[in-house]
Design a protein around this nucleic acid. Structure first.
Length: 354
DNA sequence: CGTTTTTGACCGGCGC
DNA sequence: GCGCCGGTCAAAAACG
């Protein structure tokens, strides 16, 4: 995104929020080559001239898309700030009544012996659902105040359901390009996942796999992975909740570099060959990942030329925008850089500085 | 032998 | 109330 944004007068904020310029060398590859899966096409010699033209066209298109994303991002950031201040007020107001327990109860809620059959679980279920999903609001974007509100409202009965509906764990969707021949529903995102179920859903012949974060037993994050009904080369990963821990310690730079150094991390899915284009796609606050995600989505959008319908493309695009916005606004460093850059820019443009 | 995956059964929500 | 459906459990199997 960098080159275009920096060239826009309205957006030339010279933001340096960690996006490595080196990642640019990857982008044209993913953009120019529409990620054709057929190997015979893959082996065709590149024709330079049309390639350049296609590149330029693609670049323009991406530029336009980036502009929209940037606008969306600005809007989201503004909304985020508004929500944050709102939340701060709520916390300040509700701090006296709801101090503590809800945020500390997430650890025990996922005990292995949890059983739904037992009727007593109803008691815990009444208290748990709202609170357990939001362990920490550290990264922002979620609804930490919601748990408290939930509990408060639950006493009155009906509003509980609606509020719980609104305060569901943050859900983010991710579209990852996957080899159709690879039947495993594995989306490598740097975390360790344990599959706990698989189900064939009504609207999609492809089974949906359910994963839990296995790195931290108390981690509330869940992941659903299912192939897109429109294009089975696309894996749709739906993340619910947020990790209450960092990335798994081994191979800290797995995604920024090549991932070949992953020892225990890769051991989670050893059989799967490393696929840089499909790996590292998690809504975590790492800019390279974001860039990677964009490549993935772009690749997914242009798979084989046109297999993904316009509606699907639109959907993917929208999700990409949401995801980027979420990822960026969740990143404190990005926010800090944004604030710094914006304030600096505003001061700079202000005719009456003094 | 410990961990992960598979898979059928179960549970609860929701629409009719 | 009933049936459908998505999500989860947990025993068994597979794997390293």
């Amino acid at each position: 995104m960098d080159p275009w944004i920096s060239s826009q007068p309205s957006l030339s904020l010279d933001l340096h929020v960690g996006l490595p310029p080196l990642s640019r060398h990857q982008a044209p590859v993913a953009l120019a080559k529409p990620k054709v899966l057929l190997e015979e096409n893959f082996l065709q010699p590149l024709k330079k001239e049309p390639e350049v033209a296609a590149l330029e066209t693609e670049l323009q298109r991406m530029g336009e898309e980036n502009r929209r994303l940037a606008e969306a991002l600005t809007a989201v950031a503004a909304k985020y700030e508004a929500l944050r201040s709102q939340y701060t007020e709520m916390v300040a107001a509700g701090a006296t009544t709801t101090t503590g327990p809800s945020s500390t109860s997430e650890g025990g809620s996922v005990s292995p012996s949890r059983k739904r059959k037992t009727s007593e679980s109803l008691d815990t279920a009444a208290a748990a659902p709202g609170a357990q999903q939001h362990p920490h609001g550290l990264h922002g974007g979620q609804h930490p105040g919601g748990a408290a509100a939930d509990q408060m409202e639950c006493t009155s009965g009906e509003p509980c359901k609606r509020i719980r509906e609104e305060c569901k764990p943050k859900v983010s969707k991710l579209y990852v390009h996957a080899d159709p021949s690879d039947l495993s529903l594995v989306v490598k995102d740097g975390y360790q996942w344990r599959k706990y179920g698989q189900k064939v859903t009504k609207d999609n012949p492809c089974p949906r796999a359910y994963f839990r974060c296995s790195f931290a037993p108390a981690c509330p994050v869940k992941k659903k992975v299912q192939r897109s009904a429109d294009d089975n080369t696309i894996l749709v990963a739906t993340y619910e909740g947020e990790h209450n821990h960092g990335q798994p310690p081994p191979a800290p730079s797995q995604q920024a570099h090549d991932g070949s150094g992953a020892s225990k991390n890769a051991a989670t899915k050893p059989p799967s060959p490393p696929r840089p284009a499909a790996a590292a796609a998690q809504a975590a606050p790492h800019h390279p990942q974001l860039h990677q995600q964009q490549q993935d989505v772009v690749a997914a959008m242009s798979v084989g030329g046109e297999p993904v319908g316009a509606a699907a493309s639109e959907l993917i695009r929208r999700n990409l925008a949401e995801q980027m916005a979420m990822t960026l606004t969740r990143d404190p460093s990005f926010k800090a850089a944004l604030v710094t850059a914006l304030s600096g820019r505003i001061l700079e443009l202000s005719p009456t500085k003094d």
